[in-house]
């Protein structure tokens, strides 16, 4: 078990034939991901050869010829894919996600950075109505170590284990994955730092709470919005597993003000201190540095 992504997952890559798409498809294959196709209407019918290190054959990796399909629907029909990873440029990302949702895919992982917020609002609402889960946008994706990697998270810095991790930040995720590599992770989800994201901290908390392979949850947040405060309220009501948190941005400069309206909506200052306080109030141990956070995880696991 794990959340959202397992070794059974079959993965399409939208934008596979671009520079980033090629580089990361190879990395995904190397990590054992079952990448079954790329999507590019102008290159449909071709195949792309990926040179995947032999040593990982046991994990499903091997030199692979990956077919390119003209649409997500074609790719799903031919391969039964249930996950898509989106690398297409910002201007085309909305159309790509809508296409994937129309095809009925279960999970769309949107790596693309710099998508206009109006587009994200539109495609997250659209996907929700169609029953497609979105992770991202502007995120590193998610990894279930030893099973599958959908996105750009380095797979070789950690191993399978019993910690579930959800984070707004990419490199902080990697830092914690690395610090806790001896214990390992069930699934790590980088939900992305954009103002509007498809999958939230709360979605991941709920999934980790229900995942028998996850013993402890690490939650990484940063300044802005009130997602961490909402996560704290959710933890109080619904999460019985231990949660360890880390918040970045205590000394970061204030972001641009959103006028009167911003403060009215969030009902919170969005500061790191407010988030830490909200999490600690519901029993979450919050580290003051990433390393201290890793130590808190070890202490909580030993205390069980």
């Amino acid at each position: 078990m794990a959340i959202y992504l397992t070794k059974e997952s079959t993965v399409l890559v939208q934008g596979m034939t671009g520079g980033e798409g090629m580089k990361h498809t190879r990395r995904m294959l190397t990590a054992g991901t079952n990448v079954v196709g790329g999507v590019n209407p102008r290159k449909a019918g071709r195949t792309v050869d990926f040179d995947v290190p032999q040593c990982l054959k046991g994990l499903g990796g091997a030199p692979r010829a990956v077919p390119v399909f003209g649409s997500v629907a074609d790719g799903m029909r031919a391969t039964g894919a249930d996950v898509t990873v989106v690398f297409v440029p910002p201007a085309f990302a909305k159309a790509a996600v809508v296409e994937a949702a129309d095809a009925g895919i279960g999970l769309a992982v949107v790596i693309t950075e710099g998508i206009p917020v109006h587009d994200s609002v539109a495609f997250t609402a659209y996907a929700e109505a169609k029953g497609t889960r979105i992770v991202g946008p502007n995120c590193p994706g998610l990894i279930t170590p030893g099973q599958s990697n959908a996105g750009i998270i380095p797979a070789d810095i950690t191993k399978p284990g019993r910690i579930g991790l959800v984070s707004k930040s990419g490199t902080l995720t990697y830092q914690l994955m690395y610090e806790l590599r001896d214990i390992g992770f069930s699934t790590c989800v980088g939900i992305g730092g954009d103002p509007v994201v498809g999958t939230t901290h709360i979605d991941c908390l709920a999934a980790f709470q229900d995942d028998p392979d996850t013993e402890l949850i690490v939650l990484i947040g940063e300044i802005g919005g009130d997602a961490e405060e909402r996560a704290a309220a959710y933890i109080r009501e619904h999460v019985t597993k231990p949660v360890v948190g880390y918040i970045a941005g205590f000394t970061a400069p204030e972001g641009k003000t959103m006028g009167h309206a911003g403060a009215i909506v969030s009902g919170s200052s969005g500061t790191a201190a407010a988030k830490k306080e909200a999490l600690e109030a519901v029993g979450v141990s919050v580290g003051s540095t990433p390393t201290e956070t890793a130590k808190l995880v070890l202490a909580r696991l030993e205390g069980r």
């Binding site: 984070s167 707004k168 930040s169 990419g170 490199t171 902080l172 995720t173 990697y174 830092q175 730092g193 990484i220 940063e222 300044i223 880390y246 970045a248 941005g249 205590f250 000394t251 970061a252 790191a272 003051s288 540095t289 990433p290």
Partner: peptide, 14 residues
Amino acid sequence: GAGLVMSTLDVVAG
């Protein structure tokens, strides 16, 4: 990475 840099500012301030 923005998160790691923000975290670095915090740790230096600490």
